[in-house]
């Protein structure tokens, strides 16, 4: 996995190679760009750092899961990441707390509240799934972007070598393929939404761009070609910077799509907070000294 630090090393090697070459008049206006071509990527999200966050979110999902689920992502071996329902949550019901013969106003209130509470948890589960999915999308974008940039840097290095070679006629260009530039903003796997009530969270799954299968989101053929002239460093640098710009554009487009999904979700959650997170039942608002008098609380098993 390519890291931002790898790119800093690579641009240093590019600068060194330029400085050690014999270029006649074919030098670029600003050769120092060889040594700074990847500066914009010095502290971008590091693909190697996403795993701890997506793993933690998977644990959250597992604990909140109202049903068995498929994350729509895959692990390092390409196997689908799935989980089971957490039955511990079923305790939030009159049956779950073994008071299913509890009757009366408080019982009814608790029963209704527990249903809404579980729906809220399902919404939170779906939101965690969306967050994880979008983090995967980010990871995938940056994984591909940094791999593309490394490829550009290596090809630029080889092109400089050829340009500095008196027996290479410069008639052959180095062709490469870029993944992130060719990435098609595609439909992702559906976010698991068992029991969720906020429809937008379900829709988000269908709209999530880029990341549908873990870190590798680019189907075969979804690439663009990039060529490097090998005749002089001026042309090599022009091709290098063109490639860097294309990667930057592609990253911006992909992150714009991710941002749109985030905005949609944030607005939906903000606008439906009580559905997303059920307020406590009225039972809990009764003062300690009045609890015994709380209407209906004393009617278990038909007794009073």
């Amino acid at each position: 996995m390519v890291t931002p630090a790898d790119l800093m090393d690579l641009q240093g090697r590019l600068m060194d190679r330029y400085n050690s070459g014999s270029w006649g008049s074919g030098f670029p206006d600003d050769p120092s760009q060889f040594g700074s071509c990847f500066n914009n990527f010095a502290d971008v999200p590091d693909p190697s750092q996403f795993g701890q966050h997506t793993d933690a979110l998977l644990e959250t999902m597992t604990l909140l899961a109202p049903t068995g689920f498929d994350t729509g992502t895959s692990d390092g071996s390409g196997n689908p990441v799935t989980g089971n329902a957490n039955t511990a949550l079923d305790q939030v019901s009159t049956a779950g707390i073994e008071l299913d013969d509890w009757t009366g106003q408080a019982a009814d209130g608790f029963f209704q509240w527990s249903q809404s509470w579980k729906t809220g948890i399902s919404n939170q589960f779906a939101a965690a799934a969306v967050l994880r999915q979008l983090l995967h999308a980010e990871a995938a974008v940056w994984t591909a972007a940094l791999e593309d940039l490394e490829k550009l840097g290596n090809d630029a290095y080889a092109a400089l070598e050829a340009a500095d070679d008196e027996f290479d006629t410069g008639a052959g260009e180095i062709s490469t393929t870029l993944k992130v530039v060719g990435a098609v903003v595609a439909v992702a796997a559906a976010v698991p939404t068992g029991g969720a009530s906020l429809s937008i969270l379900a829709a988000v799954g269908a709209g999530v761009t880029v990341a549908s299968t873990g870190m590798d989101v680019y189907a075969a053929g979804q690439t663009e070609s990039k060529k490097f002239a090998t005749c002089c460093p001026r042309d090599v640098l022009a091709d290098l910077m063109d490639g860097v710009r294309r990667v930057e554009d592609a990253v911006r487009d992909a992150e714009d799509a991710i941002r749109a999904q985030l905005d949609t979700n944030l607005a939906e959650i903000d606008g439906n907070w009580d559905e997303f997170c059920q307020p406590p039942p009225t039972l809990t608002s009764v003062h300690r000294n009045h609890i015994a008098a709380y209407s209906g609380l004393g009617t278990w098993g038909g007794g009073s």
């Binding site: 090809d155 260009e173 180095i174 022009a238």
Partner: peptide, 20 residues
């Protein structure tokens, strides 16, 4: 040997290359 893909030079990519 290098793993690079080499294609004939395409001068139409930019005027500078076309001059070459």
């Amino acid at each position: 040997v290098t793993g690079l893909q080499i294609t004939p030079i395409d001068g139409s990519r930019n005027p500078h290359l076309q001059t070459f």
